[in-house]
């Protein structure tokens, strides 16, 4: 069941568009934000019902996009840019460093469920590469030292 809060947020999305389906990605993001950062089957069914879509139709859309998570994720998502400018300026090093610090590889979640590491295409911060976004905070001009400090913020 969608919570009142979720419903209110989805209704707002609905007010911007002429069809229910048009709000489906917004709705999935809302449910994801309210429920541990990913869309469970239950969440999917709730949204599907609310928007008059079949679960299959909704999941077809959900699984297409990068930012709808249909599998469990950690409390914080590290979106590390793996595109060309970051790659040139040291993405691999940052990735290695994250691995050293957190013990996880791309796509994995730390055992304490704190971080999930998600390589993602270009974040549009190429003038300050390499970069990553943790949740909604952007970190730029990364160096291994800097990464260490940043991760401490999440202790």
């Amino acid at each position: 069941m969608l919570s009142q809060e979720e419903k209110a947020e989805i209704d707002k999305e609905l007010s911007h568009v002429p069809t229910k389906q048009a709000a489906c990605l917004g709705a999935l993001k809302i449910v994801q934000a309210h429920r541990d950062g990913w869309v469970t089957d239950e969440g999917l069914l709730d949204v599907a019902e609310y928007l008059d879509m079949s679960p299959d139709e909704l999941d077809s859309v959900a699984t297409f996009y990068n930012l709808i998570f249909r599998r469990p994720v950690g409390r914080h998502k590290i979106f590390i840019c793996d595109s060309v400018s970051c790659w040139i300026t040291g993405y691999k090093e940052i990735l290695e460093h994250l691995h050293k610090q957190l013990g996880i590889r791309p796509g994995e979640t730390t055992p304490d469920n704190k971080f999930t590491l998600l390589p993602i295409p270009c974040l549009g911060i190429c003038d300050h590469a390499p970069a990553f976004i943790i949740d909604e905070t952007t970190y730029v001009d990364l160096t291994p030292d800097k990464v260490e400090d940043i991760l401490k913020e999440y202790d």
Binding site: P55, D56, F64
Partner: peptide, 24 residues
């Protein structure tokens, strides 16, 4: 889906992972 109006078969995922089947 489009022709026969069935709503439990779909395309899932993207790029060369596209998958055709049911949600479950």
């Amino acid at each position: 889906h489009d022709f026969a109006g069935g709503d439990d078969l779909q395309a899932f995922a993207a790029h060369d992972h596209v998958y055709f089947g049911r949600y479950e």
